[in-house]
Write a protein that binds this DNA or RNA. Structure first.
Lengths: 225, 225
DNA sequence: CGCACCCATCAAGAGTTCGTCAAGACACCG
DNA sequence: CGGTGTCTTGACGAACTCTTGATGGGTGCG
């Protein structure tokens, strides 16, 4: 099911969009400000974002910038600002479309379809990954090392999945933390270290010298296939 | 150079678009009806199409259908029809965007940039940059020189990103310092030199004679692609 | 030629982050 | 109620990064 993240500070608008999108078969996630939007982005990885530019905490353009630094998810901007300069800025910052309020719901839905259709060739997300002497099946939730079955806890699975689904890509510790817990508990990288250590102990051949679950000091972690 | 095919039956509109697009560095091809458009499409393989729906010979929607049977080239529809049903039809038939006349030229240009950007090859869209013998992926935070992986520290990444995201543009020392640290407390350029030296040592072929990470004495630094 | 200026490079201490061990808190289940 | 497994927090040595100072090379100017 297509997941759409709707960001708008007006509860009324949020409700209307939620209603229409849900009726159309979308899986809808909402956020009322930029901070919540970025958190939801890390938590749910939506397939498309509907973004109002007038947010209470962060400027909409900065939200676009922030999203684009870590994701290529399509963004459809929804705004009451009619000036062309806002449109140009938003589109040049990486937004995919711009709809001015008031808008026709059918048009918005069509634009959403166009945006998701373009992004359709998603990065192939295989469920099976093999590295070192370990074999992981993300869908069956099974893992083995040297043929022997390995048991992983829910949190370990969550963390492992985030890394394995983005092979070679660095994942920020902030990103990992917001995904594991609901909020980035400002100072808790030690939390991640524990689970990375667990994963390495269970999956790496030399947990002391990891070859696939790598640390990028000061930034985050990376899965090296 | 980006090639854009403009399809419109009004000579005046064609001229206006031709003028503006050429001035923006586009390679412009024009067609006054659907038949000519499809011919041009086969001949030139444009990078993006600007299509008016009101054509004398073929209905605009049919043109979209025809284009989409053989090509994925982005289509930006330009139309005087304001009804939402036309927009929905056009978008669902495979158009990428819909602009109603009268339109703002800057907005159209921004939408064209957005359309071409999406269709750009994956590496470019993903923030991959290549220069000298080095290859940098700003999103995955990976870098290689002569194929060998290179490790960069957070500050090095930050500095490199500032330079690479503004190719050819000079970046002031002050600007770099305020970005790296919170404040230009001590406008000490020696701080920058250390990190520029690091980047050059890691990425340039001849760190002593940088060809891409250049110094502008007394001003700042510049990335030369 | 000496001087001032800016830049590049080397070296070393300070500061931060990482990996590991250990122990308490919590929920689930027999 | 006790046992098991999981989550969460704190502490400490080790590794890494940041930051500063000092030295040397090049250029323009009096």
């Amino acid at each position: 099911m297509t997941c759409v993240l709707v960001v708008d500070d007006e509860p009324q608008m949020l409700r209307a969009l939620h209603l229409n999108l849900t009726a159309r078969g979308y899986d809808v996630v909402t956020a009322e400000d930029g901070t919540a939007a970025l958190n939801q982005l890390a938590l749910r990885e939506p397939d498309v974002i509907v973004l109002d530019l007038g947010l209470p905490d962060i400027d909409g353009l900065d939200v676009i910038r922030a999203v684009r630094t870590g994701s290529q998810v399509p963004i459809v901007v929804l705004s009451a600002r009619v000036g062309s300069s806002d449109k140009v800025s938003a589109l040049d910052l990486g937004a995919d479309d711009f709809v001015t309020k008031p808008f026709d719901m059918n048009e918005l839905l069509a634009r959403l379809r166009a945006a998701t259709r373009r992004a359709a060739p998603e990065p192939v997300r295989r469920g099976r990954v093999e590295f070192g002497g370990a074999e992981v099946d993300l869908e069956a939730k099974t893992a083995t090392r040297e043929g022997a079955p390995v048991h992983l806890t829910p949190t370990e699975w969550h963390l492992l999945e985030l890394l394995l689904r983005n092979p070679g890509k660095l994942i920020t510790q902030r990103h990992l933390l917001t995904a594991l817990r609901g909020q980035p508990d400002h100072t808790d990288p030690s939390y991640l270290r524990i689970y990375m250590a667990q994963l390495r102990k269970k999956l790496e051949q030399e947990p002391g010298r990891p070859r696939h679950l790598l640390t990028e000091p000061g930034m985050g972690y990376r899965f090296n296939p």
